[in-house]
Design a binder for these strands. Sequence first.
DNA 1: GCGCTTTCTGACAGCGCTTTCAGATCAACA
DNA 2: TGTTGATCTGAAAGCGCTGTCAGAAAGCGC
Lengths: 360, 360
Amino acid sequence: MDKWSQVTLNDVAREAGVSSATASRALNGTTRVRADLRERVLAAAERLAYTPNAHAQALARASSQAVGVICHDVSDPYFAGISGGVMRAAAEHDLHVIMGSTFRDPARELSYVSMMRGQRVRAILLTGSGFEDRAWQGAMREELARCAAAGTRIAAVSRHHGLRVDSVLPENRAGAAALARALLGLGHRDFAVLTGPPVITTVVDRLAGFQEALAEAGVRIAPDQIVEGAFSRDGGHRAASELVARGLRATCVFASTDIMAVGALAAFRDHGLTVPGDVSLAGFDDIPVVGDLTPPLTTVALPLEEIGRRVMALALRPATAGRSRVERVPGTVVLRASTSAPAARPRRERSPRPLTETPG
Amino acid sequence: MDKWSQVTLNDVAREAGVSSATASRALNGTTRVRADLRERVLAAAERLAYTPNAHAQALARASSQAVGVICHDVSDPYFAGISGGVMRAAAEHDLHVIMGSTFRDPARELSYVSMMRGQRVRAILLTGSGFEDRAWQGAMREELARCAAAGTRIAAVSRHHGLRVDSVLPENRAGAAALARALLGLGHRDFAVLTGPPVITTVVDRLAGFQEALAEAGVRIAPDQIVEGAFSRDGGHRAASELVARGLRATCVFASTDIMAVGALAAFRDHGLTVPGDVSLAGFDDIPVVGDLTPPLTTVALPLEEIGRRVMALALRPATAGRSRVERVPGTVVLRASTSAPAARPRRERSPRPLTETPG
DNA sequence: GCGCTTTCTGACAGCGCTTTCAGATCAACA
DNA sequence: TGTTGATCTGAAAGCGCTGTCAGAAAGCGC
């Protein structure tokens, strides 16, 4: 047998001796129902432990109580933080959350959106940044148009190139620029960057902002000092090692993500380089614990939970006819001990006696 | 207008010039359909960008493609790790995930379960440990019985006292015991514990296992050396500070969670205590980055992603009539530099010259 | 060309709920 | 007591899909 006992509204109605219409009204409070009948219905529902079938409800009402959330990877602290805010906001609005992890696969993101459209969710939250890929953007644009036609709201975190959706925009570019200026202020002139896959807009923005601010000061980064790596602790470790292998000429390294910075810190240590003695290191995001590293990591703090709440709020607001809304969320530079003034000519100026340079 | 245009199966059928029944069959492949008709239907669906209404499908089929996942807090690295495994497994099985965060509120956990039952999910995954609360357990037992009657599978991570559900059991007790023995092996005899809220079974088990192993060696922990704190970095910080305020007599501190250990590490440092010089510190879980702290944290590693996959696998297996299934997942003690042999009588033996003790 | 089986197809009855619509009930007023 | 109007209730029509069932079409042997 694959049909299971389920208490239905009809059972409740029969138990209470009323019609299912009345039972529905009593339970939902949509229309006035004579007090004693309502009591009877409520009691019957309680007695039978009735739980409405959400699918039937959604079908009849032509709308559900769910929102969809799509991120790149729930286990990444960045998305975990945002998701935390989203979940809290959802709970406050009595919404169910359908979650999707794309693992940074554009195709999977698309299929999640159409799946969620099939679920007739109230709104879809795109918390991962978009992809820099024309074909993908085209397909996504079509898909989002369908969502719009179906009345499904869309809200996003980060820039989604070529897609006009309401969005919460962490100021990646400005934040990276501010960080660059702070680093210049410490006296650095030679920089290296550990960047992520260039299909992710966030990465592109951070690198661009960083380079722009440097350019304003007449500083540019040598191409070989920009290393691409995966968005993970080990990706950062590998990228930093690669940098060292190429010959680290920078006095300051910017990892476009805190997780990568964590890996880089370990890698530098493995290669006998001290931070910030031999090289300063900065990240981006201010995920938990990076302030507890030794040295604590300089970074650009983003209010992740807050971003989560705001993107939900945006999604819940009715669509506007005209332009898409954009809320900017500034990042704040947090200078910690992983960055310091560059060493004078011989590195490791702090050592009591000069040491031979550790080979690059 | 609050009714939105949606392409329905009927639209597709009309476009293809067949009945909706045939369209359904062609789309689902449940029965043979003449090749040319199937082509026409598929083409029409493609042309109209048809996405089936999941609610109508679920209602008609009396089953959905969704599973529910309930955790205590998505933004906690422990649950983020497990969720990662769950999401991967779900994607492989083409299942949608409905996620709920209880924020450690038993009532919310209950309401999530019944909400998900209303969603007619295939299975509910309880990834947070249960609560040590009779009333709650009773209510939960009833609720789970209803799920069983409705054919909704239940699987859990951690011990859910008094609830017989299939579960993946991280060996908290044995893991903590193994850790205790390792610590005893280093020469420690005086221990302190930073524990979490005692309503969480996981906490209870870890503390119990730790104490048992110590007892076997004839060691017991003074009651004032056991401090309760919140399951968070700051909770750990406060608990450790409290311990210092009470007068830290232990040479080794066990934090029942890595996040608490991170806070404790910072707190000890704030109080001028070095780790492991003045006090050894160990955690539990081996969440990301604790191996990158200075000193790297000794802990009991749990394969979080794996646990996530396994609890999903368990939920997908049909229910057994008899006893509930239990899969044990061992934790492995990872000794890192945050623990060392206790200092000889005067603390900070490593300092070149004796220092006055930092006041407790 | 006929009857028989074997495929396929379309009409239709739900799935459990909401919501419209018309009829029932009742109070109050003439 | 008869009306009118204000409330409340139940029958019934969907929401979009699946699955049963009976009948149409096609294949086959004679």
